[in-house]
């Protein structure tokens, strides 16, 4: 393996994209099916999802070698990346429309626009939520189609990513529901409290589900016949990633918030610390998965690149510049 072709911005992008998708998906469900009529309490979560999408897109584009040509993603038919970009744009546009519909609550100057959009706000969120779901699934499917990478090429990965995305979305909604620009009323406060109660349970379920999928995936790879996948999984189970995996992801990112959710009631541990830990765990998951880009080795390849790559950064690579004669 030479180096990681996809660097941290991509992992962040996958995390933020999934997070935004999760927020929109949950917001849409709650707004349309659980407690209709309190749309303003989801303005803040939607805003956060927009910020996530924006930051994610910035990371995505700066990772491109030729960012100026990014528009070309919409020029082909087959590429799965094209679908991702499309979902992202549609979700973002409708989320923005939704947000604008409630913006007048903080900034009355937007009242005419908001009044215009408000009747369709629920529809906007439904659309955004649907494409949010697409984004969540896309982040996992995109990796899992790259069959050169044994650790990614598994149906478990999209499932894991989707669960994790909803779970982190859940955490983000918990932290942000009812916030600016909503004009809080007693009613909406109650609605928000209801949502929080439900989300509390939902996230417990999601964290447990994520734990099951994650352990199933990693441990089954660790016992698998595919040497590449096994090697990668062993790195997670008892290799260089073991500390991050067991302590960081499983314990702090999943088990601790799970215990807080279950035992914490309405304490700050349960309503603030646990969601933050879930978010951190989700982020860590993306980093670790993206970095586990092991490809089956062609015999001798590692030995070759180990030697050649020790050139990187050595003085002789930059000492002489053609055209600038020294003597």
């Amino acid at each position: 393996m030479k180096h990681h072709y996809w660097e941290p911005p991509i992992a962040l992008y996958l995390f933020l994209g999934g997070l935004a998708g999760g927020i929109l998906f949950l917001s849409a469900i709650f707004n349309s099916f659980v407690i209709p009529g309190y749309g303003e309490i989801f303005a803040m979560p939607v805003l956060i999802s927009l910020v996530c999408v924006a930051i994610g897109c910035v990371f995505l584009i700066i990772d491109l070698g030729q960012p100026g040509v990014f528009w070309r993603v919409w020029t082909t038919a087959t590429s799965i990346i094209k679908w991702g970009a499309t979902f992202l744009v549609i979700a973002a546009v409708f989320a923005l429309l939704y947000l604008l519909a409630y913006l007048d609550q903080a900034w009355p100057i937007f009242a005419p626009l908001s009044q215009l959009l408000l009747p369709a706000a629920d529809f906007f969120l439904i659309v955004a939520g649907f494409f949010g779901l697409c984004i969540m699934m896309y982040t996992g499917i995109m990796l899992s189609t790259l069959k050169a990478h044994a650790f990614w090429a598994t149906p478990a990965l999209p499932v894991l990513f989707t669960i994790s995305a909803i779970s982190t979305g859940c955490a983000a909604v918990v932290l942000s529901i009812g916030g600016w620009p909503a004009q809080i009323t007693l009613e909406s406060l109650l609605a928000a409290a209801l949502v929080l109660e439900i989300l509390h349970i939902v996230d417990i379920v999601l964290v447990i589900a994520e734990l099951i999928v994650l352990l199933t995936m990693v441990l089954s790879f660790a016992g698998a016949g595919n040497v590449t996948a096994k090697k990668a999984a062993m790195r997670w189970v008892k290799g260089s990633y073991a500390l991050l995996f067991w302590v960081g992801m499983v314990f702090i990112g999943l088990l601790v918030p799970l215990m807080m959710y279950i035992g914490g009631g309405h304490s700050a541990a349960s309503t603030v610390v646990a969601p933050i830990l879930v978010l951190c765990g989700g982020c860590l998951l993306r980093f670790m998965v993206v970095n586990t880009d092991d490809r089956a080795d062609i015999p001798g390849e590692i030995r070759y690149y180990n030697r050649v790559l020790s050139s990187n950064g050595q003085e002789f690579t930059t000492k002489w510049e053609y055209g600038k004669n020294l003597f």
């Binding site: 030697r307 050649v308 020790s310 002489w320």
Partner: peptide, 15 residues
């Protein structure tokens, strides 16, 4: 040829 980056890159250090 130790100062030819294109060549040295293949064999950067004395082994």
């Amino acid at each position: 040829h130790f100062n030819m980056p294109n060549i040295r890159y293949l064999y950067p250090d004395p082994y």
